[in-house]
Amino acid sequence: MSGPLLEVEGLWKTYHAHPVLRGVDLKVDAHEVVCLIGASGSGKSTLLRCVNLLEEVDDGAITLDGDEITAPGADPDEVRKRIGMVFQSYNLFPHMSVLDNITLAPVRVHRRGRREAEERARELLERFGLADKAAEYPDRLSGGQQQRVAIIRAMACDPSLLLLDEVTSALDPELVTEVMGIIRELKDQGMTMILATHEMGFARDIADTVCFLSDGVLLERGPAEQIFTEPREPRTREFLRRVLASRRL
């Protein structure tokens, strides 16, 4: 293994002179699952969007597999081909069937044959229990099904890194487990993932590493077990105490 898969160094991001990320450092190894936790507004989504170059960074560098993707000449489209992203609100394309949602990027971006792309899509749908939904339109699916399709859509491009931004927080509790199941399965297959989440139980269960963000600063980082049982930083402790109290976990 030669260095981390993703390396974020001294990342700054401001909106209208208001700093949202303040010098964030983060390393993610291949096959590692990292969970970002932190209060609402601490910058979790912004960090993920920066990694996927959906936001322009204001300072610092992001390196993927040894290439600096924030370098002036880097092509964002090339970078995004290697990174998958799943959003809180699913963002499926409502005018396309489930199958077309999944095959759009493989066919148009990765130039795979339609037959091959569809075969692969059906295989993924089958594996995640959605085989009978291939021809459905997104608005005919439950939230949990939509989010599973969104994850499959991101996976269909065989990304080397998957970013998941609060993928369960728009879902009813009984639908959360089915989406978590799919993420767990991806972990078992060795997928490298960064998840922003409010589900502490899930973070503890699935993460190799947990990072606590507070006001745009990556305050503490460590193995899941350590962060949840003996956090070093008082602010991490305070955050976890409040979250656990409110959610009776």
Binding site: L54, N91, R108
Partner: peptide, 28 residues
């Protein structure tokens, strides 16, 4: 805008996002 973000995150270029994701919905 989240539709455009989703398209771009899949690696579609700006023109492709417009052509395959934004325009078909807008025209309808």
């Amino acid at each position: 805008p989240s539709q455009r973000s989703a398209a771009r995150s899949l690696g579609l270029s700006q023109a492709q996002a417009l052509r395959f994701v934004v325009l078909p919905q807008a025209v309808r």
